[in-house]
Design a protein around this nucleic acid. Sequence first.
DNA 1: TAGATTGTTAATCGATTAACAATC
DNA 2: TAGATTGTTAATCGATTAACAATC
Lengths: 206, 206
Amino acid sequence: MKTPKISEAVVRRLPVYLRYLQELQELHIRTVSSYELGQKLDMNPAQIRKDLAYFGEFGRKGIGYEVNYLVEKIKQILKIDRHLNCALIGAGHLGIALSNYNRFTQEKLSIAAIFDNAPDKVGTSVGTLTIQPLDELEQMVRERDILIGIITVPATEAQKVADRLVEAGVKGILNFAPVSLRVPTHVSVRNADLTTELQTLAYYID
Amino acid sequence: MKTPKISEAVVRRLPVYLRYLQELQELHIRTVSSYELGQKLDMNPAQIRKDLAYFGEFGRKGIGYEVNYLVEKIKQILKIDRHLNCALIGAGHLGIALSNYNRFTQEKLSIAAIFDNAPDKVGTSVGTLTIQPLDELEQMVRERDILIGIITVPATEAQKVADRLVEAGVKGILNFAPVSLRVPTHVSVRNADLTTELQTLAYYID
DNA sequence: TAGATTGTTAATCGATTAACAATC
DNA sequence: TAGATTGTTAATCGATTAACAATC
């Protein structure tokens, strides 16, 4: 897979294509054109073709894209065709919600450990997992080959947790805490802060 | 407030500035330069100055920006200086998590009603609210002046809920369901789909 | 005053869109 | 074949960054 230099904008659109293509799969639709995709996703067809063409020639001129094939290709590109273990740090309401949410949607991206320091939470089960104390973070990351940390602790703790995740060897962080994390360049961070989203939305009201 | 044509990229950065400025407020720091902000947020200082300058002249040459003043200004720009009522549709784990999360962070952006159709949930309390059946959505949106809908129902239900929210007069939707919603242009949608975020993150692993 | 830092213009860089030859 | 649709190049558009006069 030759990746000349793909912009984040392109990468962010791939999961959106994938999601819709999977809907088409369920409807047993075999083929789709960039025009149809563009109509449904409210995007420019040229952009869709260009995005996909960064990674290879997946379509057929005069025909369009074969849905099943494109689904597999996008999964490969995103590297979600293989297992990827995540650790969840912070077993509050949001953490529990995510660990459930996760279970029945993407079995390839799975939560392999949950941590919290509250004494009344440690030892409690969440699905098939048991909440562990934060002390055990580093050990578990290594033992269970965890590559992604999902941070759902309070803002004041988030940087400390991020530092420990980085130190333990995690490659990516999904951060739900409302702070800008500082991490080395070899670690990717994505922010999923609800407050920020709501505030952005407020701007567009009226 | 003259707003020539502000790009979404600019609007998305304002809450990030705000968040850090509020941290500075707590530390009783009175003044900050675009250079310092840039250092901390890992952004170009010229960009920060330009972003802010779209909305007015908030700084002082040779000095920088007065923290308290800038916080107030950004709140005004984002329109979070006034109350804004949201409705939450879907009282699953994620919905409950959000309604709690929300309570103690942003009192100006508050959840004013929670809906779910599951018979075992209707009538149950969540904080000070009682879960209501979806039938009552339109009525509540009107009665309680709800301008934003937060969708945390399953993907299959999300478009139906969005249609009803739009019909009831909501101006913005924060969508947690993994589907691309279709709404009229006068309604803003922001997507906060965890799966999409995780998949994007996976691309950057290794 | 001298040093610092803004607001803004101009230069650069990158992303989106249009157009079309290639071809199924 | 004729119509459709890709992959890709070129044109456009927009966003970021650099530079600097204005000025606190």
